[in-house]
Amino acid sequence: MEIRAELTGVVWQVLVSIGEEIAGNQDVVILESMKMEIPIESERGGKVKEIKVQEGDFVNEGDVLVVVD
């Protein structure tokens, strides 16, 4: 499963690490857009396989942030 950015912004914080088991509805990344912090959450649980972004990266709506098995 790919977790994608819901809006355009800057990656403010990555909350997970590769290999970590996460739960459904768990926040994985926080984006900053227009001075607001927007948490992006996983739709379902699984193991974090890949993190495609780093803190400070600019992302567009639809960009893949995290890949979960």
Rank of each mutant, 00 (worst) to 15 (best):
M1N: 09
M1S: 13
M1H: 12
E2Y: 02
I3A: 11
I3P: 06
I3M: 07
R4T: 15
R4C: 03
A5Y: 12
E6K: 15
E6N: 13
L7Y: 15
T8N: 05
T8Y: 10
T8C: 05
G9L: 14
G9I: 11
G9S: 05
V10H: 03
V10Q: 13
V11D: 00
V11S: 02
W12Q: 02
Q13C: 03
Q13D: 12
Q13M: 08
V14A: 05
V14T: 07
V14D: 01
L15G: 00
L15T: 02
V16Q: 02
S17H: 14
S17Y: 10
I18P: 03
I18R: 14
G19K: 11
G19C: 08
E20D: 04
E20A: 05
E21C: 00
E21H: 12
E21A: 11
E21T: 14
I22V: 11
I22W: 12
I22G: 10
I22M: 12
G24L: 03
N25L: 11
N25F: 11
D27Y: 12
V28Y: 08
V28Q: 10
V29G: 02
V29K: 08
I30W: 07
L31Q: 01
L31P: 07
L31I: 13
E32F: 12
S33L: 04
M34I: 12
M34S: 00
M34R: 03
K35A: 13
K35H: 10
K35N: 13
K35E: 09
M36R: 01
M36L: 15
E37W: 09
E37S: 14
I38R: 04
I38D: 04
P39S: 14
P39E: 10
P39W: 14
P39A: 13
I40N: 08
E41V: 03
E41Q: 10
E41H: 12
S42C: 11
E43F: 10
E43Y: 13
E43Q: 13
E43G: 15
E43K: 13
E43N: 08
E43L: 03
R44K: 14
R44I: 14
G45P: 02
G45F: 13
G45H: 07
G46M: 06
G46T: 04
G46H: 07
G46E: 09
K47P: 01
K47V: 14
K47W: 00
V48P: 03
V48N: 01
V48S: 05
E50N: 13
I51D: 00
I51P: 01
K52I: 00
V53H: 14
Q54C: 00
Q54W: 00
E55H: 08
E55P: 06
F58R: 15
F58N: 04
F58L: 15
N60F: 07
N60P: 00
E61S: 07
G62F: 11
G62M: 11
G62Y: 06
D63W: 02
D63A: 11
D63H: 04
D63F: 06
V64T: 15
L65G: 02
L65Q: 07
L65H: 04
V66D: 06
V67M: 08
V68R: 08
V68W: 01
